[in-house]
């Protein structure tokens, strides 16, 4: 099972790399929007997946492969910390605070909303 999870992780990491390289972000290169969008999107999808798993609509394998592997690798914490450090080193405390708040609040809310949506459907 863990081999499959790791393989899904390879896909997740590539998807993240692909999204991160999109030209859209170049216009706003002063703020790490790409990581923010990736993390919030991944949290939302993991919330939905957790809803399905709770309802026993998907089994352990699907949860491990898509949740732990694909979405786990798609989202990232290390880049978040590193970008946060860079913002602080540039003395952009407002941007750094906004980055933390946006990532944490939007991530949790997105997970909650998507999970609720799955339970509701």
């Amino acid at each position: 099972m863990i081999i499959g999870t790791a393989l899904m992780g390879a896909i997740g990491a590539c998807l993240r790399f692909y999204v991160g390289q999109l030209a859209v972000w170049r216009q706003a290169s002063r703020f790490p929007f790409s990581t923010l969008v990736i993390n919030v999107l991944g949290s939302a999808l993991l919330g939905a997946l957790w809803g399905l798993y709770e309802q026993l609509l998907i089994n352990e394998w699907v949860w491990q492969w898509l949740g732990v592997g694909l979405l786990g690798a798609f989202t990232t914490f290390s880049t978040f910390s590193y970008e946060l450090l860079q913002l602080i080193q540039q003395k952009r405390i407002g941007a750094a605070s906004a980055y933390i708040l946006a990532t944490v609040i939007l991530g949790v809310v997105a997970a909650a909303v998507f999970r609720a949506a799955v339970l509701f459907l």
Partner: peptide, 19 residues
Amino acid sequence: GSGMLGGFTTMSTFSLDLL
């Protein structure tokens, strides 16, 4: 970096655990 450490750490599970 992008591959191994990006895949090693995770934000989605962080959000869900917090929730």
